[in-house]
Design a protein around this nucleic acid. Structure first.
Lengths: 237, 237
DNA sequence: AGCTGTTTAAAACAATCGTTTAAATTCTCG
DNA sequence: CGAGAATTTAAACGATTGTTTTAAACAGCT
């Protein structure tokens, strides 16, 4: 029976608990993890084949079964690595109760940076976007661990900015308005590429310019929401 | 040689040009078109299987090969039908220069309706969203015929609402902020479903409630953008 | 009716998918 | 060194994919 972890794909490997510095094992394991991310991002979970991943990693096809149980196990580990990687690469700012405006701007900047940064970590964003449209069994965990913290910090910051007490659902909608604007410059990037000439795009669609714009929009909206939400209600007739 | 259009999948069928009222043929052809849309939308082009589509249409597996040449030929016809269908189902409102606020609200409502309407045409939106993430050669046409008219009308309406003259790129960014907020309630719908309990969602995330919220946000932003965009510029230090 | 061309039906095609097997190899450690 | 566990290898499994084939059923026309 040479199947050490067929029934426990969660546990990395048996010898890990012995504390050994498993050279060989860790090698193919990490090579799989490194190679799998971009492939999953480029072709989606279903579209990515284990053969492509293993070929890109330069390992045998059976390795994914041995080290991760199955394809989904590999995917889960990739997602987990993405979470760790992004947490330190794009750290969420601390909430500054003294200067919530700065906090909001920092949050927007973080969101936009995560969306638009085109480094070698570009595939990570693509992977998360794919989860939004074609969720895998990992989706709920991703929302809880990726989105909820930022969302709640956003709600809290907006709450600090509002002069009057706003109902919870209004705070949440304002938070979604913020996230939505940031997300659009990724989701709708291809449409923007058609609508806006490249020359203009280069000038006015950088992270700094956009974060300033979105923050301005939201500050104005927050300030006025509590006092001027009568606009539509009576014009609806 | 019983393969009439293997080399010309664009042409519907040979007898069409003879003007006959091809009952039988047109029947399975349209049944395939009607059934294929939702399947393509739900599972994506690759994920959708010819067998599923034919099973849903109640026709034989070989029919798609006969009528459309191959799977891609069927997909192209589906996309084309979507373009025609949506143009008349969700007409953009006319610009009312006397009441740009009402126009903006109507535009937001149209956008949200296209995004969130859960009729039988729901799959059309899903299909367009998939084109945003994984564009086909049809994508540019879709942007030009669907997005640009609404986008330019949005820019014009915002321009009418602004008290002072705003630079073109500011108007465009404001338009994207509007579209982005609307789009998010579809793109991020699955995330919202995790973040917000269903009970709350039912109450505050309908088209009316959201369009009112987004319009309020944008009216406040437009009104203040020209006079209070100093917020961040000097706080950046 | 009888023939011809068109359309559908059921089966089979080759290719590819994720996964498994069983032997070969490498490594660990007494 | 050499026994035994850990790991990698090559091959094959069964299921499913898009597509094609073969024969049967249907249409319209003389």
């Amino acid at each position: 029976m040479p199947e050490p972890l067929t029934h426990s794909p969660e546990t990395p490997q048996t010898i890990a608990e012995s504390g050994r510095s498993d050279d060989r094992c860790r090698d193919t394991r990490t090579r799989l993890l490194v190679a799998a991310g971009p492939v999953f991002a480029a072709r989606g979970y279903d579209g990515a084949t284990v053969r492509d991943i293993c070929s890109a990693a330069g390992v045998n096809i059976a390795s994914v079964g041995y080290h991760f149980g199955d394809k989904l196990g590999l995917y889960r580990n990739v997602i987990q690595d993405v979470r760790l990687s992004r947490a330190e690469r794009f750290p969420a700012p601390n909430t500054d109760v003294e200067d919530p405006q700065r906090t909001l701007h920092a949050l927007v900047k973080t969101l936009l940076a995560r969306m638009l940064t085109a480094e070698d970590s570009e595939w990570e964003t693509e992977l998360l976007m794919r989860e939004l449209q074609s969720p895998t069994p990992e989706f709920e965990n991703i929302v809880e661990e990726f989105f909820r913290p930022l969302f709640e910090q956003l709600v809290e910051t907006i709450s600090l900015l509002a002069k009057t007490d706003l109902p919870e659902q209004t705070l949440q909608q304002l938070a979604f308005s913020t996230v939505g604007q940031c997300l659009y410059y990724r989701v709708g990037a291809r449409a923007i590429g058609v609508l806006i000439p490249e020359q203009q795009r280069r000038l006015h669609y950088g992270i700094d310019s956009l974060s300033r714009h979105i923050t301005t929009v939201m500050l104005a909206a927050i300030e006025n929401t509590s006092s001027m939400q009568h606009y539509i209600e009576h014009a609806d007739h």
